[in-house]
Design a protein around this nucleic acid. Structure first.
Lengths: 245, 245
DNA sequence: CGGCGAGTTGACTAGCGTCAAATGATGTGG
DNA sequence: CCACATCATTTGACGCTAGTCAACTCGCCG
């Protein structure tokens, strides 16, 4: 449901948006941000909600303002896989095709800047810089997908889990949108269940649990509670993640 | 080594190129093709040759005119994975980053249209349509990577192999650059060794061999020789590939 | 306090990897 | 043209990693 705002406010929404300097929309200068704001609607989704359904047509192109979204695929027999985890400044949807390849589900509560696919594409076409930024972002996504491809194809369970923890830690420390946090902060809160981690890494939740347990016993991490760990030895964790002996 | 040609010939190279109507360069009209041809060099690589080395800086941006290229990643302990298989009209290299994430190796002999990364990016920036086409292509690559991600994460060995065969068949029948071939042609010649298929699917060569053997015994395919199969029951092969019971 | 879902732990199993030998394909030199 | 070497592929025997199934614990909330 679109939030009710006055026209004056609407014009400012993109210019005052906390993420716009880091998302693809940074490509548009102040003048053109109005244009974007004009076709944008802000929406809120509760954790667990589905934003887009796999296989259905959807004209949504969204930019995440806050929260975490998982893109999942379901095989006919019920096996599930998470192909991508998205957070603030990431994009949902494909400018080119209306048919969604995957489910988009909210892992946490989500604030989403929503556009109509074609309207957004029009703006992309008329603003090459935006197109260029979009290209850059999809290129990064592709690179990340390939990194996980090698992990799923060739790494052992512990290595995958170590890699996932390192990845989460990097995510936290790259974004730094919220508060400027200390870089030596080794505490890690995460919103994912064991099953979600498993579905992402191509494992079962039991195996994920055992691997986290092993890293805890080996004193690489400390398991504070189910969704909070402290990294005790980041270098070793990285070595394990990289399969570096 | 650049092929020696006269200036007049050079100007025409892109316009007369057999793949240019299907590659990203299709975005450029006749006038601008000269521009592209001006900064392009044609190179030939033998099967087994390395085009780009993982981790090294490379300013190559290439479009494959003919042949098959594999992008591989090597883990510190020697395990290897193929993250992507490329053929005619596909692009090698990343416009944005000079450091290569992966090895690019020739599976067959390869003809490559080579550009300097930055020069190509300049043309992309000045020709939004080209940028748009590039975006479209990277988007497709991303979608394909995610398809393989679910396969590596959640599918069984036979399902992966079936999927690979279906994929090869689709590739053959999509391109159709060479000769317009009969669509009911169920013969499939492929250039990959068992080890390459294994490195792509996250299996071992023995497992790939056994799975192909099983599909042969089950009369879904007929193994004519190591690198040539006939598909006997495409529907069933697709069902197996999709894990559809 | 009891019920519920998430996570952990244990016992057992199956699928795939590992190692090794056999077979087949291809090429080379006498 | 054959003998031989070499490499890719197949096949077999065995072991290990991660999956399966089930019991148990923990934290949370009514």
């Amino acid at each position: 449901m679109p939030v009710a705002v006055s026209v004056g406010e609407m014009d400012l929404r993109c210019a005052t948006c906390p993420v716009h300097h880091h998302a693809v929309c940074q490509a548009l200068g102040g003048l053109y941000l109005h244009e974007l704001a004009g076709i944008m609607t802000h929406r809120h989704f509760e954790a667990g909600t589905e934003i887009v359904h796999q296989g259905e047509t959807s004209n949504l192109f969204g930019i995440i303002a806050s929260g975490v979204v998982k893109l999942t695929r379901l095989l006919p027999d019920g096996r599930q896989h998470i192909v991508c985890l998205l957070s603030e400044t990431d994009c949902i949807g494909d400018v080119f095709s209306a048919e969604s390849h995957d489910n988009a589900m909210c892992v946490t509560d989500v604030e989403l800047c929503c556009f109509h696919r074609k309207q957004f594409d029009e703006i992309v076409k008329s603003h090459p810089t935006l197109g260029h930024h979009l290209l850059q972002r999809v290129t990064v996504d592709l690179e990340e997908a390939r990194q996980w491809l090698t992990a799923l194809g060739r790494k052992k369970a512990v290595e995958k889990v170590a890699m996932f923890i390192v990845w989460m830690w990097n995510e936290e420390h790259e974004h730094c949108l919220h508060a400027p946090r200390r870089v030596n902060d080794m505490m890690l809160h995460f919103p994912f269940s064991r099953e979600e981690i498993a579905d992402f890494l191509g494992l079962t939740l039991e195996t994920v649990s055992r691997c986290i347990g092993k890293l805890d016993v080996d004193r690489v991490i400390t398991l504070l509670n189910a969704k909070c760990i402290e990294i005790r030895d980041l270098d070793r964790l990285r070595q394990i993640a990289e399969s570096d002996i």
